[in-house]
Design a protein around this nucleic acid. Structure first.
Length: 952
RNA sequence: GCUCGAAUGGUGGAAUUGGUAGACACGAGGGACUUAAAAUCCCUUGACCAGUGAUGGUCGUACGGGUUCGAUUCCCGUUUCGAGCACCA
């Protein structure tokens, strides 16, 4: 019987659906395993061969775990909100929901053809009200929470928590009622800026004023901040959505703009996000990326008094040891201190400089790092030396980091050095023997000198000792405090877009109010236009019915707004990462309309055991969802602090483009090997009409009208194309669609081939050339199986057959555990060849082999499983275990080394013990050829019982 | 600039973590079957040298050193490529 993959795959695709083979339910009697893929954004282009790579890898693991007896959750869904659908809507007027729906349908068709074991009954879509209900709910909870290191009311026994936690905002309110802000700093409350008021002042505040103050502490808060504004897209972007000063999507310029936006206080969780990395099994490089992004730095905040004034300001430094080398101070141009400290004489110069800075975009700053700045006119007193240092203003100091002000130590900081050289400011070296005539000495090493103060000296200490000593001194003298800073900023959570989750928020007296929890979800309204309004409001400004009636608790027409009972609703929507931040929890209990996830389901599934996705989400989704989950953990909704225990990054599949070479000014194309003899232009050619770099000439003529009359100069009767590895994209005609591969070779071949291509984690070019090999293997396996089935030998298998089988079981089991699928597949090829050569006809060998191949080629395995007489799915079989006794080598080898060279001796029986072998070696019995006339120096018995004899 | 990671035939990639480098596959070459093609099967395939031949020898894992009986693997230095962060004080 021929291997007819088309019929087989069709048959099992249908049967899996009718028999609900992949439906999972919580089963306390079985151990769970949660496998998850990053859910896709359903783009209009459909899947290309790069997309399924991660899905196949995790599918194999999921199937393997199931065969091992685990209750495996392997769900799939869609990150359905997104920019492309909206931009398409702007261009065509087509509602994004319609395009999204169509794209999802197409994705699903493509996914279904590849044979994944997804439990589609648990599918989620971020754009459905039943789903974004819980996105909105989490946002409301964040609004109603603040973050502090310890509880504001210390527990009676004084055992305060120290790790930090989100807590109900009511705790903070009652603290203010009793204490104002007095003593608040001791609790480590996360805040936008430090406020100061008494209990009386608090209690005297109006409701609106109180709400304004609370914004300073809420985890979801409305904040006026500098944002990345992208004029082209008409929206703000988060830091991870901006790359090199342009938008990650579209590559449009981004400028800094001050705007009132919803923000999430991710920074409050910086330390926990950092600490959590130690507990999870991710690649070192990905953890490192997150550590960089969080950017923890330990240092000190030191207060500087302004000369001839009662003003003072604080700077942040990690090099407190260099206090004696400060020769000037620098403020960020955006800092509030600039106005305060500019003297009247300098005002004109400062204003001119500020105007210049304002004109420069993020991009300009990156591309030309000119040294620019202006003197403010004021001086600051160095608390260590009493010296007065000029205060400058320069764009090289950032407002958003530290305090927006620095002390400049030109001898030991390259940026300060460049500034000092440019403006001719003094440079004081502080390390013995360092040369600062050409460049600064930035390294944190050496012995400190020139650092003698009134009552304090650092001279003679190493830099490390000096940093510690200075911090201690600063603390004791009350000159400042030890401080940890993070680069991680709060996430900007508003987008001026239509196709996103609406905020469950309305505005009363300019202050945001949450709509009642029981009224969620607040559904996205219909609009006529998806563009911003004429008045520059976000697209939701076009909605007619977009006001909140507090009497009926319902959405009503905007014309009803009276600011008494009917109020305007929020016009912004949430960003892309909102919906993807807790979807893994929703899969556990996707149809629950009472909670995001029930405690029972959460308790059972815990966290994702294996998460597979691209590393491009390292500083976006993977930070936000860790933050989001930690918040839900604090609330007691999620029982695990880290959502993704093990993470595997699948490498990108690049395109392999093909070229034809046209002789200039002709319609004649010359084959690769002969192109150097002509003046040619290389042109991309559709890879789908090229096979093994040989052009299908007829297909090429039909491809484009202008090529219909093309002529060719061939090599050996063939036209050979050139090739290059490039990004997979339509414009390079190198997009390979999985449907075509499935059509031609079958899903099982595709699965096998994608895994065989190379390590899952590694980026690699898609090369259709090798796919025959995988297909050929399946046919060989099939033929072997048919031979065995035809003979139906029930005898005991031979030793050689068992050895072959158990070698395979061992290798495949180990390789799947290590995601080393590309080496597991050759093991199948070898075993198939070995068993064919042994003329194996034994069903007892075939049966475990079918189970082993099942994760890789599920349709194929199901069919053979049925032919073996089973009536249940191969998915419910038991993964075979290997037995060491079949694997023992019958001989061991002796290795002999002399004159610095290694040679190999003769095989001898495996059951010989080490002493016998050594004695034999010393007696020259086994390798007379090499040992004759040599003196044995030593005998080393090395792993795997190879014997190494050192001779002279 | 800082921090990670990588480098092996014509190609994708193996090598049990210090033990026969190049598994397996692709490509290439040769052969069998066939009127022919497709399909299938078999052999050769890192480089160089010697030999009619079986075979033997030398060099080979980016480069230069080191440790070791033995290094793709460990250590030091160099080069190249990739990734992340980046006026972050």
């Amino acid at each position: 019987m021929e291997y007819n993959f088309r019929d087989i795959e069709k048959k099992w695709r249908q049967r899996w659906v009718t028999q609900q083979t992949y439906k999972v339910t919580e089963d306390p009697n079985r151990q769970k395993f949660y496998v998850l893929n990053m859910f896709p954004y359903p783009s209009g282009a459909g899947l290309h061969v790069g997309h399924p790579l991660g899905y196949i890898a995790s599918d194999i693991y999921a199937r393997y775990k199931r065969l091992q007896g685990f209750n495996v959750l392997n769900p799939m869904g869609y990150d359905a909100y997104g920019l492309p659908a909206e931009q398409y809507a702007i261009q065509t007027g087509q509602h994004p929901a319609i395009t999204t729906e169509a794209n999802i349908k197409r994705y699903r068709e493509q996914l279904d053809k590849i044979g994944f074991c997804f439990d589609w009954s648990r599918e989620v879509r971020t754009c459905e009200p039943g789903y974004y209900h819980w996105t909105q709910w989490a946002f409301q909870k964040m609004f109603g929470s603040f973050y502090s290191l310890t509880p504001l009311t210390p527990s009676p026994k004084g055992e305060g928590e120290t790790s930090g936690k989100a807590r109900p905002i009511e705790e903070l309110i009652s603290f203010f009622e009793q204490n104002g802000t007095r003593g608040l700093e001791e609790y480590g409350v996360a805040q936008s800026e430090e406020l100061s008021f008494t209990a009386e002042e608090w209690n005297a505040k109006s409701e609106v004023e109180k709400q304004q103050v609370l914004m300073n502490y809420r985890i979801a808060y409305l904040g006026e901040t500098m944002v990345n504004w992208c004029p082209e897209l008409g929206t703000v972007l988060a830091n991870d959505e901006v790359i090199d000063g342009v938008s990650a999507r579209g590559g449009f310029p981004v400028v800094q703009k001050r705007m009132k936006q919803w923000c999430l206080r991710v920074s409050a969780y910086a330390q926990r996000l950092l600490d959590g990395l130690e507990t999870i099994d991710w690649t070192e490089s990905l953890k490192e990326t997150q550590r960089n992004w969080i950017g923890r730095s330990e240092g000190a905040e030191v207060e500087f008094k302004v000369k001839d004034s009662d003003k003072s300001f604080t700077i942040f430094t990690t090099r407190a040891d260099t206090m004696f080398g400060v020769t000037f101070m620098v403020l960020a141009p955006e800092s509030d201190l600039v106005q305060e400290l500019t003297t009247p004489e300098q005002k004109a110069a400062v204003d001119e400089y500020l105007t210049y800075v304002k004109k420069r975009t993020e991009r300009d700053r990156i591309s030309d790092r000119k040294v620019t700045g202006v003197f403010s006119g004021s001086y600051a007193i160095n608390p260590f030396t009493g010296d007065a240092n000029p205060i400058w203003i320069s764009e090289y100091v950032l407002a958003g980091y530290g305090t927006g002000a620095i002390m400049a130590v030109p001898a030991h900081d390259s940026r300060d050095y460049a500034f000092a050289k440019h403006f001719n400011l003094p440079i004081i070296p502080l390390i013995e023997g360092c040369d600062v005539s050409e460049e600064s000495f930035d390294a944190k090493e050496g012995i400190v000198c020139n650092s003698q103060g009134k009552d304090f000296s650092l001279n003679g200490l190493t830099v490390k000792e000096a940093i510690a000593a200075t911090k201690k001194y600063v603390k004791e003298k009350g000159l400042g405090r030890v401080k940890v800073n993070y680069r991680l900023r709060d996430a900007i959570f508003s987008r001026q877009r239509y196709w996103g989750e609406p905020f469950p928020v309305y505005y009363k007296e300019g202050m945001p109010q949450m709509i009642p929890e029981e009224c969620l979800p607040l559904e996205l309204p219909e609009v006529d236009k998806f563009l911003p309004t004429e008045t520059g409001e976000p697209p939701l400004g076009n909605a007619k019915k977009w006001a909140w009636d507090t009497k009926s608790n319902s959405v009503v027409d905007c014309s009803a707004i009276d600011n008494v009972t009917v109020f305007p609703l929020e016009l912004n929507t949430m960003p892309g990462f909102a919906g993807s931040s807790a979807y893994y929890l929703r899969y556990m209990d996707p149809h629950n309309d009472q909670a995001l996830v029930s405690p029972e389901a959460d308790e059972y599934w815990q966290a994702v055991d294996l998460y597979v996705g691209g590393s491009e989400h390292a500083t976006g989704h993977l930070i936000y969802s860790r933050f989001w989950n930690k918040f839900l953990f604090d609330l007691g909704v999620s029982c695990r602090e880290e959502p993704f225990q093990k993470l595997v990054n699948q490498g990108m599949i690049q395109g392999r483009s093909n070229f034809v070479y046209r002789i200039k000014d002709t319609n004649t194309f010359v084959s690769l090997g002969l192109k150097d003899q002509y003046d040619v232009t290389p042109l991309h050619v559709d890879v789908n009409i090229v096979s093994a770099d040989v052009l299908d000439i007829e297909a090429f003529k039909a491809w484009r009208p202008e090529y219909a009359t093309a002529e060719f100069i061939l090599e050996d009767g063939k036209y050979i194309c050139g090739w290059a590895v490039e990004k997979m994209s339509k414009s390079m005609f190198n997009v390979v669609n999985p449907d075509m591969i499935v059509e031609k070779f079958g899903a099982d071949t595709l699965r096998l081939y994608e895994m065989f291509l190379g390590p899952v984690e590694q980026a690699k070019p898609w090369d259709t050339n090798g796919i025959d090999g995988s297909h050929r293997f399946l046919k060989k396996f099939w033929n072997l199986a048919q031979t065995i089935l035809a003979q139906s030998n029930e005898d005991a298998p031979t030793a050689a057959e068992l050895k072959s089988l158990h070698k395979l079981i061992k290798k495949v089991t180990e390789d799947i555990e290590n995601f080393s699928y590309n080496t597991a597949i050759p093991a199948f090829m070898i075993a198939t060849n070995e068993l064919s050569q042994l003329n194996c006809t034994n069903r007892a060998i075939l049966e475990p082999m079918v189970i082993l191949i099942a994760p890789f080629a599920p349709h194929f395995a199901e069919e053979l499983w049925e032919q073996l007489g089973h009536t249940t799915s191969v998915c419910d079989a038991q993964w075979p275990e290997f037995e060491e006794k079949y694997l023992v080598e019958d001989t061991v080898k002796m290795m002999v080394a002399f004159n610095g060279k290694t040679r190999f001796g003769i095989d001898f029986p495996a059951d010989a013990d080490n002493a016998t072998i050594e004695a034999a070696a010393r007696g020259h019995e086994l390798t007379p050829k090499y040992l004759e006339g040599k003196q044995i120096m030593k005998v080393i018995i090395v792993p795997k019982r190879m014997i190494n004899i050192v001779c002279k």
